[in-house]
Amino acid sequence: MATEKSGTQRPGGRTERTRQAVLLATLELLAERGFLSLTVDAVAERSGVHKTTVYRRWKSPDGLVAAALDLGSEDDWAAPDTGSLENDLYGLAEELVRYFTEPDLRELPTASILAAFHSDQAAAALRGFYENRHARCTEIVRRAIDRGEAPTGTDAAEVIRSACAPIFYRLFISREPVDLKAARLAARAATLAARAGAFTR
């Protein structure tokens, strides 16, 4: 979902500082303007990096957005660990609701998803972001299996998709209100399906 800024960043010198400045400016402008109004010149101006450098390295708004979305794989985000499968999944669903509905947060993740419909590069980066999140969520299902809440062989990524899909459906398809009740319902349904063996390979 696209990405929240983190305190954990790659170490580096001037080249890395330039990269960070450009990509963070890209995220800011993506949230403010959306993908279709994003320009390389605007990113250069916002970041304070000469536009020749930006064009040479990232070439286009597509390249900038794809690289900026990749920042999500560098953060220090960790999956919830509450002691139960349902509550871990609720933590994920609650985070989605918060990111996509709170006024101070919702513009960037929403713009990131919309960008993926206009740019193959952005779509590939967004897919990579969620693959990274799925990998980090593997522990949720591993712990659930150890506690006897899900059978051995349960596909962790499918459990996570099942818990998150109803939130995205309400947000982007049916345009229904999304709240914490919806998050709880999605988590409970995914948990019951996992316990029944619906996601075993």
Rank of each mutant, 00 (worst) to 15 (best):
M1Y: 04
A2N: 06
A2L: 11
K5S: 10
S6Q: 07
S6M: 04
G7Y: 08
T8S: 12
T8D: 06
Q9A: 13
R10V: 05
G12E: 13
R17F: 02
R19E: 12
Q20I: 13
A21Q: 12
A21M: 11
A21N: 15
L23Q: 00
L23Y: 08
L24P: 00
L24T: 14
A25E: 03
T26E: 02
E28G: 09
L29V: 09
E32Q: 13
G34Q: 09
F35P: 01
L38W: 01
V40H: 06
V43R: 04
V43Q: 07
S47C: 11
K51R: 13
T52M: 08
V54T: 04
V54W: 07
R57L: 10
W58G: 05
K59Y: 00
D62F: 03
D62Y: 01
G63V: 02
L64G: 06
V65G: 03
A66D: 00
A68W: 03
D70E: 15
D70C: 07
D75L: 04
W77N: 05
A78V: 14
A78K: 15
A79I: 01
D81M: 00
T82F: 00
G83E: 11
G83L: 09
S84M: 02
E86T: 13
E86N: 05
D88T: 10
Y90N: 02
G91A: 07
L92A: 11
A93F: 02
E94Y: 06
E95V: 01
L96G: 05
V97H: 02
E102R: 15
E102A: 13
L105C: 08
R106F: 12
R106V: 11
E107K: 01
L108G: 03
A111T: 12
A111L: 13
S112V: 13
I113Q: 11
A115F: 06
A116W: 14
F117G: 00
S119Y: 07
D120F: 05
D120L: 13
Q121V: 02
Q121I: 00
Q121D: 11
A123F: 09
A123L: 11
A124Q: 12
L126C: 03
E131R: 15
N132L: 10
N132V: 03
N132G: 14
A135D: 10
R136N: 12
R136W: 01
I140Q: 12
R142Y: 00
P151T: 04
T152L: 08
G153I: 08
A156V: 08
A156K: 00
A157N: 04
V159N: 06
S162Y: 06
S162K: 04
A163E: 04
C164H: 04
I167L: 14
F168V: 04
R170C: 10
F172H: 14
I173F: 05
I173D: 15
I173K: 02
S174C: 07
R175Y: 08
P177Q: 13
D179I: 03
L180S: 13
L180M: 09
L180D: 13
L185G: 09
A190N: 06
A190V: 07
A194I: 07
R195K: 12
A196G: 10
G197W: 07
T200E: 14
R201Y: 07
